[in-house]
Computed example of a mutant assay.
Amino acid sequence: MSAGILAQLIAQGSAGGADLATLRAIAEEAGELAATRALTRLGLADDEAVRDVAELRALLTAWRDAKRSAWKALAGWIAAALLAALAVKLGFGQWVR
Protein backbone atom coordinates (compact mmCIF):
# COMPACT_ATOMS: atom_id res chain seq x y z
CA MET A 1 0.00 0.00 0.00
CA SER A 2 1.45 3.34 -0.98
CA ALA A 3 1.79 6.27 1.41
CA GLY A 4 -0.85 8.21 -0.54
CA ILE A 5 -3.48 5.49 -0.16
CA LEU A 6 -2.62 5.09 3.52
CA ALA A 7 -3.00 8.85 4.03
CA GLN A 8 -6.41 8.75 2.31
CA LEU A 9 -7.58 5.87 4.48
CA ILE A 10 -6.46 7.64 7.64
CA ALA A 11 -8.24 10.80 6.50
CA GLN A 12 -11.44 8.81 5.83
CA GLY A 13 -11.24 7.13 9.21
CA SER A 14 -10.64 10.45 10.89
CA ALA A 15 -13.59 12.02 9.07
CA GLY A 16 -15.72 9.09 10.17
CA GLY A 17 -15.00 9.81 13.82
CA ALA A 18 -12.00 7.57 14.46
CA ASP A 19 -9.18 8.96 16.57
CA LEU A 20 -6.07 9.85 14.48
CA ALA A 21 -3.72 8.22 17.01
CA THR A 22 -5.74 5.00 16.84
CA LEU A 23 -5.67 5.00 13.04
CA ARG A 24 -1.91 5.52 13.04
CA ALA A 25 -1.46 2.68 15.55
CA ILE A 26 -3.57 0.38 13.37
CA ALA A 27 -1.50 1.28 10.30
CA GLU A 28 1.75 0.69 12.19
CA GLU A 29 0.54 -2.65 13.53
CA ALA A 30 -0.57 -3.72 10.05
CA GLY A 31 2.87 -2.81 8.68
CA GLU A 32 4.63 -4.84 11.34
CA LEU A 33 2.34 -7.80 10.73
CA ALA A 34 3.00 -7.67 6.97
CA ALA A 35 6.76 -7.44 7.53
CA THR A 36 6.66 -10.42 9.91
CA ARG A 37 4.68 -12.46 7.38
CA ALA A 38 7.11 -11.61 4.61
CA LEU A 39 10.12 -12.56 6.74
CA THR A 40 8.42 -15.81 7.77
CA ARG A 41 7.75 -16.71 4.15
CA LEU A 42 11.40 -16.06 3.35
CA GLY A 43 12.50 -18.21 6.29
CA LEU A 44 14.03 -15.26 8.10
CA ALA A 45 11.77 -14.99 11.13
CA ASP A 46 13.78 -17.12 13.56
CA ASP A 47 16.62 -16.19 15.91
CA GLU A 48 19.22 -17.55 13.47
CA ALA A 49 18.15 -15.14 10.71
CA VAL A 50 20.52 -12.33 11.69
CA ARG A 51 23.50 -14.68 11.63
CA ASP A 52 22.32 -16.28 8.38
CA VAL A 53 22.02 -12.94 6.61
CA ALA A 54 25.43 -11.85 7.93
CA GLU A 55 26.98 -15.08 6.62
CA LEU A 56 25.30 -14.64 3.24
CA ARG A 57 26.63 -11.10 3.00
CA ALA A 58 30.14 -12.30 3.89
CA LEU A 59 29.86 -15.06 1.28
CA LEU A 60 28.70 -12.56 -1.34
CA THR A 61 31.60 -10.24 -0.50
CA ALA A 62 34.07 -13.13 -0.79
CA TRP A 63 32.55 -14.11 -4.16
CA ARG A 64 32.88 -10.55 -5.46
CA ASP A 65 36.50 -10.37 -4.26
CA ALA A 66 37.32 -13.71 -5.90
CA LYS A 67 35.68 -12.64 -9.15
CA ARG A 68 37.63 -9.37 -9.16
CA SER A 69 40.89 -11.23 -8.49
CA ALA A 70 40.16 -13.71 -11.27
CA TRP A 71 39.58 -10.92 -13.79
CA LYS A 72 42.82 -9.20 -12.72
CA ALA A 73 44.74 -12.47 -13.06
CA LEU A 74 43.24 -13.08 -16.50
CA ALA A 75 44.19 -9.56 -17.60
CA GLY A 76 47.75 -10.18 -16.36
CA TRP A 77 48.03 -13.46 -18.29
CA ILE A 78 46.71 -11.84 -21.45
CA ALA A 79 49.18 -8.97 -21.11
CA ALA A 80 52.07 -11.43 -20.56
CA ALA A 81 51.02 -13.48 -23.59
CA LEU A 82 50.81 -10.37 -25.76
CA LEU A 83 54.24 -9.22 -24.61
CA ALA A 84 55.70 -12.68 -25.31
CA ALA A 85 54.13 -12.73 -28.77
CA LEU A 86 55.47 -9.24 -29.47
CA ALA A 87 58.95 -10.27 -28.32
CA VAL A 88 58.92 -13.29 -30.64
CA LYS A 89 57.61 -11.16 -33.51
CA LEU A 90 60.42 -8.61 -32.99
CA GLY A 91 63.09 -11.30 -32.95
CA PHE A 92 63.65 -11.57 -29.22
CA GLY A 93 62.40 -15.17 -29.14
CA GLN A 94 65.53 -16.52 -27.50
CA TRP A 95 64.87 -14.27 -24.47
CA VAL A 96 61.37 -15.68 -24.04
CA ARG A 97 62.65 -19.28 -23.82
Rank of each mutant, 00 (worst) to 15 (best):
1 M>Q: 07
1 M>V: 09
1 M>A: 10
2 S>L: 05
2 S>Q: 04
2 S>I: 06
3 A>G: 03
3 A>Y: 03
3 A>L: 11
4 G>F: 12
5 I>K: 15
6 L>P: 00
6 L>G: 00
6 L>W: 01
7 A>C: 05
9 L>M: 14
10 I>S: 03
11 A>Q: 15
11 A>Y: 12
11 A>K: 15
12 Q>W: 07
16 G>T: 05
17 G>E: 02
18 A>E: 11
18 A>T: 11
18 A>F: 11
19 D>L: 03
20 L>G: 07
20 L>T: 15
20 L>E: 11
20 L>F: 08
21 A>F: 08
21 A>I: 13
21 A>P: 01
22 T>V: 10
23 L>S: 06
23 L>D: 01
24 R>N: 07
25 A>H: 15
26 I>K: 01
26 I>C: 02
26 I>Y: 01
27 A>M: 05
27 A>I: 00
27 A>V: 06
30 A>G: 03
31 G>D: 08
31 G>W: 10
31 G>F: 07
32 E>Q: 11
32 E>R: 14
33 L>M: 15
33 L>K: 15
34 A>T: 12
35 A>Y: 07
36 T>S: 11
36 T>G: 02
38 A>W: 07
39 L>Y: 04
39 L>M: 14
39 L>A: 10
40 T>L: 05
40 T>M: 02
40 T>E: 03
40 T>F: 03
41 R>I: 09
41 R>G: 11
42 L>T: 04
43 G>V: 07
44 L>C: 13
44 L>T: 06
45 A>P: 02
48 E>G: 00
49 A>D: 03
51 R>G: 08
51 R>V: 09
51 R>D: 12
51 R>M: 01
51 R>A: 14
52 D>S: 06
54 A>L: 15
54 A>N: 06
54 A>R: 10
56 L>S: 04
56 L>G: 04
57 R>M: 15
57 R>D: 12
58 A>Q: 12
58 A>R: 10
58 A>M: 14
59 L>D: 04
59 L>Y: 03
59 L>M: 06
61 T>K: 03
62 A>E: 11
62 A>Q: 14
63 W>K: 06
64 R>M: 04
65 D>R: 15
65 D>M: 14
66 A>L: 13
66 A>M: 14
66 A>Q: 13
66 A>N: 13
66 A>W: 12
67 K>L: 13
67 K>Q: 11
68 R>L: 07
69 S>L: 02
70 A>I: 08
70 A>G: 06
70 A>V: 05
70 A>D: 02
71 W>C: 04
71 W>L: 09
71 W>T: 09
72 K>Q: 09
73 A>P: 01
73 A>R: 06
75 A>M: 10
76 G>L: 12
77 W>N: 08
77 W>S: 09
77 W>H: 14
77 W>R: 11
77 W>V: 11
78 I>K: 11
79 A>E: 11
79 A>T: 13
80 A>Q: 10
80 A>C: 09
80 A>T: 10
82 L>V: 15
83 L>N: 00
83 L>K: 04
83 L>R: 01
85 A>C: 09
85 A>E: 08
87 A>F: 01
87 A>E: 00
88 V>T: 07
88 V>R: 05
89 K>C: 00
89 K>Y: 12
89 K>P: 00
89 K>D: 06
90 L>R: 09
91 G>F: 04
92 F>P: 00
93 G>I: 01
93 G>P: 01
93 G>L: 03
93 G>R: 09
96 V>D: 02
96 V>W: 07
